[in-house]
Amino acid sequence: MAYWLFKTEPDTFSIDTLRLQKVACWEGVRNYQARNMLRDEIKLGDEVLIYHSSCKKIGVAGIARVVKEAYPDHFQFDPDSPYFDIKADPSNPRWMMVDIEFVRKFERIVTLAELKAIPDLENMPLVKRGNRLSVMPVSEDEWQTILHQE
């Protein structure tokens, strides 16, 4: 099992949305590096930190688990979707998504400022400037450190 962090804007999709839906597709990833992780590295049963960004309280909001490995993001083919990609080809899809299920919501948001202040997280991509993909790996030690902040 591996650990990941998925970023989302809670006005669009939040840990509470996932809690209500129970299972949801993680669509709309339009960065090749993040897409490659979804496609090649993220596996069934991997655990995910759900991270709220572009909001008042930026930080880790809860945990999800991967319940379906990568498959084509069908929104890339839908001209009415904000995730439509005119260059996407159904015979060779450019963009992938996974399905995740709600595990639990944290009692409180573990903020980015808190994460940046923890020496054990100094090498985590999330806390490094200019290195904030929407999907990123989390080491087991980083995972445990974050869980202990909750």
Rank of each mutant, 00 (worst) to 15 (best):
Phe6Asp: 07
Trp4Met: 03
Arg94Trp: 09
Arg19Ile: 06
Val98Arg: 03
Met124Ala: 12
Asp99His: 10
Ile118Arg: 10
Pro119Phe: 11
Ala70Gly: 07
Leu20Asp: 14
Trp4Leu: 04
Ile42Phe: 02
Met124Gly: 06
Glu142Arg: 00
Tyr71Asp: 01
Val127Ile: 15
Thr111Trp: 09
Leu18Asp: 09
Ala24Lys: 08
Thr8Trp: 06
Pro125Arg: 07
Thr111Ile: 10
Asp78Glu: 12
Ile86Phe: 08
His148Val: 06
Gln144Leu: 14
Ala2Tyr: 05
Met96Gln: 13
Cys25Glu: 14
Arg108His: 14
Pro79Glu: 13
His74Glu: 14
Asn31Lys: 07
Leu133Gln: 06
Lys128His: 01
Thr8Tyr: 08
Arg129Asn: 10
Leu44Lys: 07
Lys128Trp: 00
Cys25Ser: 14
Lys43Trp: 05
Met124Glu: 09
Asp120Val: 04
Glu150Leu: 09
Trp143His: 03
Leu121Phe: 04
Asp85Glu: 06
Pro119Tyr: 12
Ser54Lys: 11
Ala64His: 06
Ile50Met: 15
Arg94Ala: 14
Leu5Ser: 04
Gly59Gln: 08
Tyr51Ser: 02
Ile42Gln: 00
Gln33Tyr: 09
Asp85Ile: 04
Cys25His: 13
Ser139His: 06
Arg65Trp: 03
Phe77Asp: 08
Val138Tyr: 00
Ser91Gly: 13
Ala117Asp: 14
Trp26Phe: 10
Asn92Met: 09
Phe13Ile: 08
Phe77Asn: 07
Ser14Tyr: 08
Thr111Asp: 11
Lys56His: 15
Ile146Val: 15
Ile63Asn: 03
Glu114Trp: 09
Gly62Ile: 02
Ser134Val: 02
Lys43Ile: 03
His74Ala: 13
Leu147Asn: 07
Arg108Gly: 02
Ser14Thr: 09
Glu122Asp: 12
Asp89Leu: 05
Val29Ala: 04
Leu20Phe: 13
Thr111Glu: 13
Lys7Ser: 04
Tyr51Ile: 01
Lys87Cys: 02
Pro137Phe: 08
Thr111Met: 07
Ile58Arg: 10
Val135Leu: 05
Ile50Pro: 12
Asn123Val: 04
Thr8Lys: 05
His148Asp: 14
Glu69Phe: 00
Arg129Asp: 11
Leu126Asp: 03
Val67Asn: 03
Ser139Cys: 07
Phe13Asn: 04
Leu147Thr: 06
Asp141His: 12
Gly130Arg: 07
Asn92Gln: 13
His74Asp: 14
Ala113Cys: 03
Val23Gly: 03
Lys87Ile: 04
Asp80Tyr: 08
Asp11Gln: 13
Trp26Tyr: 12
Ala2Cys: 10
Lys56Met: 13
Arg108Cys: 03
Leu115Thr: 07
Ser53Gln: 11
Thr12Gly: 10
Phe84Asp: 00
Ser134Lys: 00
Asp46Ala: 05
Pro10Cys: 08
Val135Asn: 02
Gly59Phe: 08
Pro90Ile: 05
Val110Ser: 05
